[in-house]
């Protein structure tokens, strides 16, 4: 379920005093995560892509980015089931696109 395209994806925990620092850290680290995802994708190391997606699936909703978590979980499941290549491709792109929108 790709969300309506909006420039930014805000954390639902962005105002939680216990979490705001962590959310900021997660957002700051996001470019590195995207780079790792893309590098694994270019190298066709799908098991690494699956691992990274798995981590995003576990973490994103915790930081208040449920759509990222959903997309990551979808991709992870698709890679586990070895779904059609074009579906994997689309879901990978969806995930990267969502990741690049996160902000506090």
């Amino acid at each position: 379920m790709t969300p309506e395209p909006s420039e930014r994806l805000h954390s639902s925990h962005g105002t939680d005093p216990d979490l705001v620092e962590l959310v900021r850290m997660f957002v700051d680290e996001m470019p590195a995560r995207i780079a790792a995802l893309q590098a694994a994708w270019e190298a066709e190391e799908l098991s690494v892509v699956r691992r990274l997606a798995h981590q995003l699936a576990g973490a994103s909703a915790g930081y208040g980015f449920d759509p990222v978590g959903d997309a990551a979980r979808k991709l992870e499941a698709r890679l586990t089931d070895r779904g059609p290549a074009e579906t994997i491709r689309r879901e990978f792109d969806d995930l990267v696109s969502l990741c690049s929108k996160v902000t506090v």
Partner: peptide
């Protein structure tokens, strides 16, 4: 094995 879970758990159980 996920560092994020550790961070989040620590924040969530802080009090």
């Amino acid at each position: 094995d996920c560092p994020d879970v550790h961070r989040l758990m620590r924040a969530r159980l802080r009090h």
